[in-house]
């Protein structure tokens, strides 16, 4: 069968549905947000249509720069932790018996069904002084006194990695299943230990998949706003938390929209940089 370029308007019809979906669920809301970000804030909950840069100007400060920097750093750290943990895990999972795989995947899917609130409360209990895991360490004689592990950066990171881990595995799984198992066997016959074979063959062969997964987890983590509040101190709050504050509690939609637009732009920029860097690496 030959593929012909579309000739008439009718030939473009199959594109209409996805185009409509994209418009309704992405272009319109995002366009609205951009528009609102330029509106004039009326102190006390209202805003009037206008074209002012006040909202962006307010954002461009060392304070918000710091929060933005922390949010990006946190999301990158979560993405790296998730991939570093999930890659070997998923690799081993694909080499297990089908039955074992199903059990694991069902377990991971059930974590996905947990809401951010439940995950946050579960971890804040696990990390608490009165009911947390340090009590087990005390009982085992490893620690002398139970202590609270939350709120802390480690707690935020743990919670977010826990939440994003199933996504990471599910994204990596198909690529790892498709990976020719004889590649690692070949590496072993050529003198690489299983560990070396993993790093010299599996990881580089999956470079594109890994990059894509990093980007996905990064974006996922960037949107998190409950876990940093439940498990962190205020200095661990992400920009998403402040956006929520402005939108819900301060009724300052224009400023919230400006922050969100800025966040989206920075994110897109980072993703573009990653993709370009990946291309260059491939060409070299």
């Amino acid at each position: 069968m030959r593929r012909e370029p579309p000739q008439t308007l009718g030939d473009y019809a199959p594109l209409l549905f996805p185009a409509a979906m994209l418009t309704i669920f992405f272009v319109v809301p995002f366009g609205t947000m951009i528009a609102v970000s330029f509106f004039q804030r009326q102190q006390g909950g209202f805003y009037t249509p206008a074209f002012v840069f006040d909202n962006y100007a307010r954002f461009l400060s060392a304070f918000f720069g710091g929060v933005l920097g922390f949010s990006l750093l946190l999301a990158i750290t979560v993405a790296i932790c998730c991939v570093v943990l999930a890659l070997p895990f998923t690799y081993m999972l694909t080499r297990m018996a089908r039955k074992v795989q199903v059990v694991w995947l069902v377990a991971l899917l059930s974590i996905l069904s947990l809401s951010e609130v439940i995950i946050g409360f579960a971890w804040s209990t696990l990390f608490s002084r009165t009911a947390g895991i340090t009590n087990i360490l005390v009982a085992l004689g490893i620690m002398s006194e139970a202590k609270a592990l939350t709120p802390s950066f480690g707690a935020v990171l743990t919670g977010m990695v826990y939440q994003a881990f199933p996504y990471t595995v599910l994204v990596l799984f198909p690529a790892l299943v498709r990976l020719d198992p004889t590649l690692t066997e070949a590496a072993r016959t050529l003198g690489a230990s299983p560990l070396k074979a993993f790093f010299t063959v599996v990881v580089p062969a999956l470079r594109n998949t890994i990059t894509a997964t990093l980007i996905m987890v990064f974006i996922f983590a960037l949107g998190s706003y409950l876990l940093p509040q439940l498990l962190g101190r205020p200095q661990h709050w992400t920009l998403s938390v402040l956006i929520t504050d402005q939108a819900i509690y301060q009724s300052n939609m224009p400023f919230a929209a400006a922050m969100a637009v800025f966040l989206v732009l920075v994110t897109l920029g980072l993703v573009a940089l990653t993709v370009i860097a990946g291309r260059k690496g491939e060409a070299a």
Partner: peptide, 16 residues
């Protein structure tokens, strides 16, 4: 395997 110092060609060739 990796300490046997052998060479092996697979049916799939398994080129990296």
């Amino acid at each position: 395997t990796h300490k046997r110092n052998l060479g092996m060609v697979f049916q799939s060739l398994a080129l990296f």
